[in-house]
Protein backbone atom coordinates (compact mmCIF):
# COMPACT_ATOMS: atom_id res chain seq x y z
CA UNK A 1 0.00 0.00 0.00
CA UNK A 2 1.43 3.36 -1.04
CA UNK A 3 1.20 6.63 0.90
CA UNK A 4 -1.40 7.80 -1.59
CA UNK A 5 -3.58 4.74 -0.89
CA UNK A 6 -3.23 5.33 2.84
CA UNK A 7 -4.35 8.95 2.56
CA UNK A 8 -7.26 7.88 0.39
CA UNK A 9 -8.46 5.25 2.86
CA UNK A 10 -7.56 7.05 6.05
CA UNK A 11 -11.14 7.91 7.07
CA UNK A 12 -12.43 4.44 6.25
CA UNK A 13 -9.65 3.03 8.44
CA UNK A 14 -10.50 5.35 11.34
CA UNK A 15 -14.18 4.47 11.02
CA UNK A 16 -13.46 0.74 10.88
CA UNK A 17 -14.84 0.42 7.37
CA UNK A 18 -11.83 -1.41 5.95
CA UNK A 19 -11.81 -5.21 5.69
CA UNK A 20 -9.44 -7.13 7.99
CA UNK A 21 -6.86 -7.70 5.24
CA UNK A 22 -6.99 -4.07 4.10
CA UNK A 23 -6.63 -2.89 7.69
CA UNK A 24 -3.61 -5.17 8.22
CA UNK A 25 -2.00 -3.81 5.06
CA UNK A 26 -2.78 -0.29 6.19
CA UNK A 27 -1.20 -0.83 9.59
CA UNK A 28 1.90 -2.46 8.17
CA UNK A 29 2.40 0.67 6.06
CA UNK A 30 1.97 2.86 9.13
CA UNK A 31 4.74 0.97 10.92
CA UNK A 32 7.14 1.88 8.12
CA UNK A 33 6.01 5.42 7.25
CA UNK A 34 6.30 8.20 9.84
CA UNK A 35 4.44 10.79 7.77
CA UNK A 36 1.36 8.60 7.34
CA UNK A 37 1.43 7.57 11.00
CA UNK A 38 1.50 11.25 12.00
CA UNK A 39 -1.47 11.90 9.75
CA UNK A 40 -3.46 9.04 11.32
CA UNK A 41 -2.46 10.11 14.83
CA UNK A 42 -3.53 13.69 14.19
CA UNK A 43 -6.91 12.67 12.86
CA UNK A 44 -7.48 10.19 15.72
CA UNK A 45 -6.62 12.94 18.14
CA UNK A 46 -9.21 15.22 16.53
CA UNK A 47 -11.78 12.43 16.83
CA UNK A 48 -10.95 11.83 20.47
CA UNK A 49 -11.10 15.53 21.25
CA UNK A 50 -14.47 15.76 19.53
CA UNK A 51 -15.93 12.79 21.34
CA UNK A 52 -16.31 14.62 24.66
CA UNK A 53 -20.00 14.32 25.54
CA UNK A 54 -22.00 17.04 27.16
CA UNK A 55 -24.54 16.40 29.86
CA UNK A 56 -27.65 18.43 30.24
CA UNK A 57 -27.19 20.16 33.60
CA UNK A 58 -29.65 18.88 36.20
CA UNK A 59 -31.13 22.33 36.91
CA UNK A 60 -31.63 22.95 33.20
CA UNK A 61 -33.17 19.51 32.77
CA UNK A 62 -35.70 20.25 35.45
CA UNK A 63 -36.48 23.61 33.90
CA UNK A 64 -36.86 22.21 30.40
CA UNK A 65 -39.08 19.39 31.60
CA UNK A 66 -41.21 21.93 33.46
CA UNK A 67 -41.57 24.09 30.35
CA UNK A 68 -42.31 21.13 28.12
CA UNK A 69 -44.83 19.81 30.60
CA UNK A 70 -46.57 23.17 30.82
CA UNK A 71 -46.94 23.41 27.10
CA UNK A 72 -48.19 19.88 26.52
CA UNK A 73 -51.81 19.70 25.57
CA UNK A 74 -52.32 23.38 24.73
CA UNK A 75 -53.73 22.73 21.29
CA UNK A 76 -54.04 26.20 19.72
CA UNK A 77 -50.56 27.15 20.79
CA UNK A 78 -49.16 23.94 19.30
CA UNK A 79 -50.92 24.63 16.05
CA UNK A 80 -49.70 28.23 15.86
CA UNK A 81 -46.18 27.30 16.78
CA UNK A 82 -46.16 24.41 14.31
CA UNK A 83 -47.20 26.79 11.54
CA UNK A 84 -44.55 29.32 12.54
CA UNK A 85 -41.96 26.55 12.61
CA UNK A 86 -42.93 25.31 9.15
CA UNK A 87 -42.69 28.82 7.69
CA UNK A 88 -39.35 29.36 9.36
CA UNK A 89 -38.05 26.07 7.98
CA UNK A 90 -39.30 27.00 4.51
CA UNK A 91 -37.42 30.31 4.55
CA UNK A 92 -34.34 28.66 5.96
CA UNK A 93 -34.38 26.09 3.18
CA UNK A 94 -34.61 28.88 0.62
CA UNK A 95 -31.36 30.09 2.11
CA UNK A 96 -29.85 26.62 1.97
CA UNK A 97 -31.02 26.07 -1.60
CA UNK A 98 -32.63 22.66 -1.39
CA UNK A 99 -34.31 21.38 -4.51
CA UNK A 100 -37.92 21.29 -3.34
CA UNK A 101 -37.87 24.81 -1.96
CA UNK A 102 -36.28 26.06 -5.15
CA UNK A 103 -39.07 24.47 -7.17
CA UNK A 104 -41.80 25.71 -4.85
CA UNK A 105 -40.24 29.17 -4.73
CA UNK A 106 -41.12 29.72 -8.40
CA UNK A 107 -44.94 29.56 -8.04
CA UNK A 108 -44.78 31.41 -4.71
CA UNK A 109 -42.80 34.26 -6.29
CA UNK A 110 -45.06 34.33 -9.35
CA UNK A 111 -48.18 34.39 -7.19
CA UNK A 112 -46.70 37.27 -5.21
CA UNK A 113 -46.06 39.40 -8.30
CA UNK A 114 -49.37 38.49 -9.92
CA UNK A 115 -51.18 39.57 -6.73
CA UNK A 116 -49.42 42.94 -7.00
CA UNK A 117 -50.24 43.32 -10.69
CA UNK A 118 -53.91 42.51 -10.05
CA UNK A 119 -54.12 45.71 -8.04
CA UNK A 120 -53.80 47.58 -11.36
CA UNK A 121 -56.60 46.37 -13.65
CA UNK A 122 -55.92 46.59 -17.36
CA UNK A 123 -57.92 49.32 -19.08
CA UNK A 124 -58.23 49.56 -22.84
CA UNK A 125 -56.78 52.85 -24.03
CA UNK A 126 -60.04 53.88 -25.79
CA UNK A 127 -61.93 53.62 -22.55
CA UNK A 128 -60.08 56.31 -20.72
CA UNK A 129 -59.40 58.66 -23.64
CA UNK A 130 -62.15 60.60 -25.30
CA UNK A 131 -64.12 58.11 -27.43
CA UNK A 132 -63.53 60.11 -30.61
CA UNK A 133 -59.80 59.63 -30.23
CA UNK A 134 -58.16 56.50 -31.43
CA UNK A 135 -54.59 55.54 -31.08
CA UNK A 136 -52.67 54.34 -34.06
CA UNK A 137 -49.40 52.66 -33.71
CA UNK A 138 -46.71 52.81 -36.34
CA UNK A 139 -44.95 49.61 -37.22
CA UNK A 140 -42.07 49.84 -34.84
CA UNK A 141 -38.81 48.16 -34.08
CA UNK A 142 -37.49 47.51 -30.60
CA UNK A 143 -35.62 50.78 -30.88
CA UNK A 144 -38.36 53.03 -32.11
CA UNK A 145 -41.98 53.75 -31.54
CA UNK A 146 -44.14 56.44 -33.05
CA UNK A 147 -47.58 57.32 -31.82
CA UNK A 148 -49.97 59.57 -33.62
CA UNK A 149 -53.22 60.64 -32.03
CA UNK A 150 -55.84 61.85 -34.42
CA UNK A 151 -59.42 62.94 -34.41
CA UNK A 152 -60.59 59.98 -36.42
CA UNK A 153 -64.05 61.40 -37.08
CA UNK A 154 -62.82 64.29 -39.15
CA UNK A 155 -60.27 62.71 -41.40
CA UNK A 156 -60.24 59.88 -43.81
CA UNK A 157 -57.92 56.98 -43.01
CA UNK A 158 -55.79 57.94 -46.03
CA UNK A 159 -55.11 61.37 -44.53
CA UNK A 160 -54.10 59.91 -41.24
CA UNK A 161 -51.77 57.52 -43.01
CA UNK A 162 -50.26 60.47 -44.87
CA UNK A 163 -49.58 62.34 -41.66
CA UNK A 164 -48.19 59.31 -39.97
CA UNK A 165 -45.86 58.42 -42.79
CA UNK A 166 -44.67 62.01 -42.92
CA UNK A 167 -44.02 61.95 -39.20
CA UNK A 168 -42.30 58.65 -39.45
CA UNK A 169 -39.80 60.06 -41.90
CA UNK A 170 -38.74 62.83 -39.53
CA UNK A 171 -35.20 62.15 -38.44
CA UNK A 172 -35.59 63.19 -34.82
CA UNK A 173 -35.86 61.67 -31.42
CA UNK A 174 -38.40 64.03 -29.97
CA UNK A 175 -42.04 64.62 -29.06
CA UNK A 176 -44.57 67.40 -29.44
CA UNK A 177 -48.31 68.18 -29.64
CA UNK A 178 -49.78 70.81 -31.90
CA UNK A 179 -53.25 72.00 -32.78
CA UNK A 180 -53.68 72.56 -36.50
CA UNK A 181 -56.51 74.03 -38.54
CA UNK A 182 -57.38 72.92 -42.04
CA UNK A 183 -57.37 75.87 -44.40
CA UNK A 184 -59.76 76.65 -47.29
CA UNK A 185 -57.16 75.38 -49.75
CA UNK A 186 -57.27 71.95 -48.17
CA UNK A 187 -53.94 72.21 -46.39
CA UNK A 188 -53.37 72.58 -42.68
CA UNK A 189 -51.61 75.19 -40.53
CA UNK A 190 -50.37 75.02 -37.02
CA UNK A 191 -52.62 77.15 -34.82
CA UNK A 192 -51.28 76.39 -31.42
CA UNK A 193 -48.39 74.43 -30.01
CA UNK A 194 -49.42 72.56 -26.88
CA UNK A 195 -46.10 70.84 -26.32
CA UNK A 196 -42.96 72.18 -27.96
CA UNK A 197 -40.38 69.77 -29.35
CA UNK A 198 -36.77 70.20 -28.40
CA UNK A 199 -35.81 70.99 -31.93
CA UNK A 200 -37.20 74.03 -33.72
CA UNK A 201 -36.34 72.34 -37.01
CA UNK A 202 -38.78 69.57 -36.23
CA UNK A 203 -41.61 72.04 -35.64
CA UNK A 204 -40.74 73.67 -38.93
CA UNK A 205 -40.72 70.28 -40.66
CA UNK A 206 -44.14 69.41 -39.25
CA UNK A 207 -45.48 72.76 -40.33
CA UNK A 208 -44.09 72.15 -43.83
CA UNK A 209 -45.61 68.67 -43.87
CA UNK A 210 -49.04 69.94 -42.85
CA UNK A 211 -48.94 72.72 -45.40
CA UNK A 212 -47.99 70.30 -48.16
CA UNK A 213 -50.63 67.70 -47.26
CA UNK A 214 -53.91 67.86 -49.13
CA UNK A 215 -56.79 67.18 -46.72
CA UNK A 216 -59.91 65.77 -48.30
CA UNK A 217 -62.17 67.15 -45.56
CA UNK A 218 -61.40 70.72 -46.69
CA UNK A 219 -64.00 70.27 -49.42
CA UNK A 220 -66.67 70.09 -46.79
CA UNK A 221 -67.13 73.72 -45.75
CA UNK A 222 -69.71 73.06 -43.11
CA UNK A 223 -67.09 72.07 -40.55
CA UNK A 224 -63.76 73.64 -39.71
CA UNK A 225 -61.77 70.57 -38.99
CA UNK A 226 -59.08 70.52 -36.36
CA UNK A 227 -56.01 68.41 -36.41
CA UNK A 228 -54.52 67.48 -33.12
CA UNK A 229 -51.15 66.24 -33.98
CA UNK A 230 -49.32 64.50 -31.20
CA UNK A 231 -46.09 62.87 -32.02
CA UNK A 232 -43.62 60.91 -30.00
CA UNK A 233 -40.69 59.41 -31.73
CA UNK A 234 -37.78 57.69 -30.19
CA UNK A 235 -35.45 56.87 -32.96
CA UNK A 236 -31.99 57.76 -34.15
CA UNK A 237 -31.10 58.12 -37.79
CA UNK A 238 -27.37 58.51 -37.59
CA UNK A 239 -27.04 58.69 -41.36
CA UNK A 240 -29.52 61.58 -41.70
CA UNK A 241 -28.35 64.43 -39.50
CA UNK A 242 -30.81 67.32 -39.69
CA UNK A 243 -33.47 67.72 -42.32
Amino acid sequence: MSCQDVLKNIHDYLDGELSASQAAEFESHLRQCDACRCEVDDLSWVRQTLAVKEHLPAAAEEQIWKHVHQRLGVVWWDWAYGLFDDIRTYWRDLDRITVWTRVSAVPVTLAFFVSILLQFPLVAIEEWTYPAFTMKRMPSSVFSEALVTQIQARHTPAEIDDIMSAAWKLPYEDSFTVLAQVTAEGHAEIEDVIEYPKSHDLLQAVDDTLRATQFQTAQNNTVKPLVIYSFQKIDVYSDQPGL
Partner: peptide, 11 residues
Protein backbone atom coordinates in the same frame (compact mmCIF):
# COMPACT_ATOMS: atom_id res chain seq x y z
CA UNK B 1 -33.48 20.53 23.41
CA UNK B 2 -36.76 21.87 24.70
CA UNK B 3 -38.08 22.47 21.18
CA UNK B 4 -37.03 19.00 20.04
CA UNK B 5 -39.08 17.33 22.74
CA UNK B 6 -42.03 19.62 22.15
CA UNK B 7 -41.83 18.76 18.46
CA UNK B 8 -41.72 15.10 19.40
CA UNK B 9 -44.96 15.52 21.32
CA UNK B 10 -46.61 17.61 18.62
CA UNK B 11 -45.56 15.65 15.58
Amino acid sequence: TQEVFLTLYRK
